[in-house]
């Protein structure tokens, strides 16, 4: 099934982190995923986690240049959620005859492999950041993740001027790099 035109627009919106697009996809898909997970030994928290994970996977897919979704958004999300949830059930040893569903699903194994690889990278960054300590972590997060300007960061942390804060930020960045690559080498 080919995606419809507005579906393509939604995906482009998602790739740009557009709130409206995210909200529409969320609205149209969350409830069905929630009831699938609640009826399959899951909790509300599980439903939210799994659904958001699928949204992230879809986002990553939408970002690749060669991206074409060969099915409808809801089929894709449903397939990913189902795959993720069954895997989780297996991990916690509660995989006994899960509910069969009659919804259409597609193969998502390859996408999820890529997604998991990325999650691994992110967790390395997360670990590096958390062993960085304050105020380094805050400086880096404010500048690179929250995109706060150097002036505001200097004010917030009480540096006398933006240049000093910037020097500090570079020092932190170098430490972070070290921490990150150290894991990378072990991980490889």
């Amino acid at each position: 099934m080919k995606p419809e035109l507005n579906e393509q627009a939604l995906l482009e919106g998602l790739a740009e982190n557009n709130s409206k697009a995210i909200e529409i996809i969320y609205k149209e898909n969350f409830n069905i995923i929630q009831s699938y997970i609640l009826n399959n030994n899951g909790s509300y928290d599980d439903a939210r986690d799994i659904f958001q994970e699928a949204m992230i996977a879809l986002y990553e897919k939408a970002q690749t240049e060669s991206f074409v979704l060969t099915c409808k958004i809801n089929t894709y999300i449903y397939s990913v959620c189902k795959r993720l949830w069954l895997k989780k059930l297996q991990q916690i040893g509660r995989y006994n005859n899960p509910l069969e569903s009659y919804e259409e699903t597609i193969q998502v194994e390859e996408d999820l492999e890529i997604h998991e690889k990325r999650n691994l990278d992110f967790s390395m960054m997360e670990r590096a950041l958390s062993s960085l300590g304050e105020p380094c972590r805050g400086l880096i997060e404010n500048f690179y993740i929250k995109k706060v300007s150097m002036q505001d960061i200097a004010k917030q942390y009480g540096y006398t001027n933006a240049d000093n804060a910037k020097t500090q930020k570079y020092k932190c960045l170098m430490r972070l790099k070290k921490l990150f690559f150290a894991q990378y080498n072990i991980g490889e």
């Binding site: 982190n17 992230i56 990278d121 992110f122």
Partner: peptide, 12 residues
Amino acid sequence: DFAANQRLKYKL
């Protein structure tokens, strides 16, 4: 990528 991932998580 990490930053984008975090921002998406906040947004979700």
